[in-house]
Design a protein around this nucleic acid. Structure first.
Length: 304
DNA sequence: AATTTGCTCAACCGCGATAGG
DNA sequence: CCCTATCGCGGTTGAGCAAAT
């Protein structure tokens, strides 16, 4: 069965030959691709337009980056996937020179397994239930262990600044913080998505998570709790680090420049973290989702 | 050396969105 | 509006290769 877009005969399929690549590159570089469906005809290819478009965007485009993904790229993928899920095209937009197909393949062949080996559900980024009960393998000193939990099902929260009610994504974590103790070196991610959860709810979930993690791993809760603390609102935060406060101030300034009402944002606890993914934060803020009456996920998608 | 198994990744498939007649 | 063609996306497949048996 051929593609719907090209029911004509003699449509070649499968891997592209170097000769076909040359023809396509020669045609696109001189004529562009206003209409993919007409590209094969004019380029002299026995392919359908859809196949040409795919070959060009995934392989022949001159701006493509080759080679393995870097650690930084991997972290970007994980962070954005946590928010957007399997929206590969949106994720790829944050990785110059990478295609959605490439990101998707990398996720399925590598990242997914890594997360599972760390006891995390690759779809939700939450702890796998088996790891909550069983002794997990997280004590690998290099692992990134993420404390997390499920949102209450169908929960809706109201944000005063927007008069907007939305169902937040199923996430409450941000990048990890290394917590060193005399006995253990483990990464804990104890930061909630401040925009989605009421503070009391955050505090409850994080406390519950610490308890879960410690009981499944044999860690002493007091050891963990010594490394993090509650702020004035009872929210768990990681130990402050040098320079972080300066970074927070910098971000506050940026937000003011964007004309946002800082007092309201602070009221939501946005800056209560000592470690936060500022890049992601900025990216989200650029979408101005705080001041528009739009669906949260749609706005994220818009921006990403 | 032959066969099986597992993995990667390029390419395909089908669907929803969009544009244009 | 409706219909058709096309585009873009996410899920899936399978060829080709390497490692294991």
């Amino acid at each position: 069965m051929g593609h719907r877009c090209c029911s004509k005969q003699k449509i070649k399929r499968g891997l592209w030959s170097p000769e076909e690549d040359d023809k396509l590159v020669a045609y696109i570089t001189t004529h562009g691709h206003k209409s993919w469906s007409s590209v094969p005809k004019f380029a002299g290819l026995q392919r359908c337009g859809k196949s040409c478009r795919l070959r060009w965007t995934n392989y022949l485009r001159p701006d493509l980056k080759r080679g393995s993904f870097t650690v930084e790229e991997e972290h970007i993928i994980i962070d954005i996937h946590r928010i957007l899920g399997n929206r590969w095209a949106q994720i790829a937009k944050h990785l110059p020179g990478r295609t959605d197909n490439e990101v998707k393949n990398f996720w399925n062949s590598c990242i997914k397994k890594k997360l599972i080996s760390q006891g995390l559900d690759p779809q939700t980024h939450n702890l796998l239930s088996s790891h909550k009960r069983n002794n997990s393998s997280y004590q690998n000193s290099n692992s990134i262990f993420i404390l997390t939990s499920q949102m209450p099902p169908n929960a809706n929260y109201h944000i005063e600044t927007t008069n907007q009610t939305f169902s937040p994504p199923n996430i409450i974590q941000t990048p990890s913080t290394i917590v060193s103790t005399n006995q253990y070196q483990t990464s804990f991610n104890v930061i909630s998505n401040q925009l989605c959860l009421p503070e009391q709810e955050q505090a409850r979930i994080i406390t519950e998570n610490i308890s879960n993690v410690c009981s499944s791993s044999g860690l002493d809760t007091t050891v963990v709790e010594n490394e993090i603390s509650k702020n004035k609102n009872g929210i768990w935060v990681s130990r402050d680090e040098e320079g972080t406060q300066a970074r927070v101030e910098e971000e506050k300034e940026k937000m003011c420049e964007k004309g946002m009402d800082l007092s309201e944002i602070e009221m939501n606890g946005f800056f209560e973290n000592s470690k936060f993914d500022f890049g992601l934060l900025e990216s989200v803020l650029n979408s101005e989702f705080i001041s528009h009456d739009l669906d949260y996920m749609d706005v994220l998608a818009w921006n990403f």
